[in-house]
Design a protein around this nucleic acid. Sequence first.
DNA 1: GTGTGAACTTAGGAACCATCGT
DNA 2: ACGATGGTTCCTAAGTTCACAC
Length: 781
Amino acid sequence: MSSSEEDDIVLSRIPKKRHIISEMTPPTSIDEDDIPLKNSGKRKNTIAEDDDYEEDVPLVKKAKKANGSALKKVKKEPKTPKKTPTTPKATTTKAKAADKKTTPKATPKKETKSVSATPKSRKVAIKEESVKQETPMSSQEDEEKYKWWEAQDLDGEQKWESLEHNGVMFPPEYEPLPSHVKLYYDGKPVNLPLQAEEVAGFYAAMLETDHAKNPVFQKNFFDDFCQVLKECGGCGVDINDFTKMDFSKMYAHFEKLREEKKLMSREEKKQIKLEKERLEEPYKTCYLNGRKELVGNFRIEPPGLFRGRGAHPKTGKLKRRVKPEDVTLNLGRDVKVPEPPAGHKWGEIRHDNTVTWLAMWKENIADSFKYVRFAASSSVKGQSDFKKFETARNLRNHIDAIRKDYTEMLRSEKMQDRQMATATYLIDVFALRAGGEKGEDEADTVGCCSLRFEHITLKPPNKVIFDFLGKDSIRFYQEVEVDKQVFKNLRIFKKEPKQPGDDLFDRINPSILNKHFQNYMKGLTAKVFRTYNASKTMQDQLDLIPNEGTIAEKVVKFNAANRTVAILCNHQRSVSKNHGTSVQKISDKLKEYMWQKIRLKRMILVLEPKLRKKDPAYFEEIDDLVKEDEEHIHHTIINRQREQVMKKLQRDNEKLKLEKKPLLTEKDVKDKLDKIDELEKEYRQELKKGKPEVKSNMTVEKLKQQVETIEARYVTTSLQLKDKEDNSEVSLGTSKMNYIDPRLTVMFSKKYGVPIEKLFTKTLRDKFKWAIESADENWRF
DNA sequence: GTGTGAACTTAGGAACCATCGT
DNA sequence: ACGATGGTTCCTAAGTTCACAC
């Protein structure tokens, strides 16, 4: 076959390539790496014509490191922190939208128009609406009824016509510790300045968590703590050794507060909750194009210690308090700007209707932005969700062609194309994420394009073992069989001089890949494959479910389908710490049921011994129970009963103590204990004789009835156990919320007569209202 | 292409809450 | 009536993607 021939050629050329590559890119140094890079463009063009994939040059991804940060700084410099629109964004085209006459009423309509009209490269579908902004905050009638999915699709650059909101909610000010609660350093109490005390408190409060035991966390915390301490003038003691810090007093104080909170009366708790709700009331909603909408995260994130996931180099760093001056609000031009907190000003006011955020601030850990956005149930989010699923759904019209193409392209002469095809295969088949490049100061996690040498192991003829940390440092481990050619390609991508640490896909990145995808379908990017395959899988799984059985059974089947999707997407959750015990409990229960059943059957035989011959199968299992197990179960039962009696005694006594009445003693429960003793005796007898006592009023009929009851319980419980095990490390929620087209769930609900409440929680019903109201029992993805 | 900023979706764990079995 | 338990919501970190400057 031509394939192997081709491969032979390819492989035979490798030495040559190796030579070239090692000349061009010394394997050791990243910095030197970026020198050849500059030539790459030129070289590549000529070489590509050779049809010799071997010779085009890897993208050099790590090049920036050194001068990258320098660049960054240069860039940032012109950014004067003044009031002028100097953020990079503000100077770009879009920025005209953000153009800020901080005085909101400056030139309302003209500006709004120019906002939308400016972006040069795009045809902006804006019909110069002479915005009839009827006082939004008052129109309450139709808001409930607005169904955007039945309305016209405004699919353009402009995201809103008018926007009014009340700004953001700030966390409460820091409350100083009582004077007797202090940090101890080197055995002595320390008087910390308030700001430093707050930071120390962040750590103290989490003293018993895993985070606090992580050395990186400790170091980052300590560095930032010392910094803060220095900034506010120190504390008279030279604090320079983390190990001498004693947070125990502070920790105890926080524990006490926690306890007190728990012990608050029902009434008090209610009051506090009411008060909280009253305070957040104004921020919960906003007006979008005159209609009331829910805001999502209107609360500014409180300060604290950064809890990065996985091995994050910055974990433990201080997340500083956000001030109104740090916050940029985005709202309509003609609308009242909410009052900043007393004595403060907003950082900036924007009127950018090409974006959907309400407020924004810069965060100090990664130096990125945080946004206040609409809630998931809002029309804005609903629309983009709808669009996302429609894009994914549209992929079904192209997927065959795409698969055919990449299958062919796996053998391309051009290295970049081979990588592209192979990556597409992995993304399509194993639902990998795109895998963008990550920095030194982030956790080392990867996706498809950032997979490295050490992340896959090849086992001929075609087995691949993936083992890497993906998003959120969740491990992706799979042993799979792949297409022969994919296997060969991966082997080539790992060929010398590649070594651990090197990128497998050194000629592509998500950007290149996505650009390629655009050729097939508008809006097609790497992540669309995940959505498509998830929803497609769900559809296929649902198709397999017969329309029969109880609602509960159907729900179980639905969840099983959901689970296959979750597994496809590698959605995991950590096993809860008491998972082990609760599994043990259930299997104990199962054993006990089994024992009960057998015991009942033995009783039947006591009544009518000849039944055994008549129906040997029915009685077969009674031999399965060995004496030791039986004895053990007896013990468990007896112990449990005794414990229960004693526990109740204790509880009663506690009450009596409060009422100052005389306490009960063991004598008072003697009756009960005696009964248990009796039972114990009975069991012992039973064990000796090998058959149970049978009450005089028992009949074979009754006993058989009881056996059935027990059997039913056994089945239910074992299903429960299986479900628990299967689900212990799979998280169904993420795929239900983000990947499975909600119209599939709605379809299932209608077609199988399962109330939607059993499949979607309240929040999901709100989020997917559009789907619930638009899909019927015949809808297909 | 590379680098970066910006804006958006996706994600797991903690906190909170309701319900269930005893 | 009560704690354990499991489900739901909240929180915010961690991704992807896109536009733009170079």
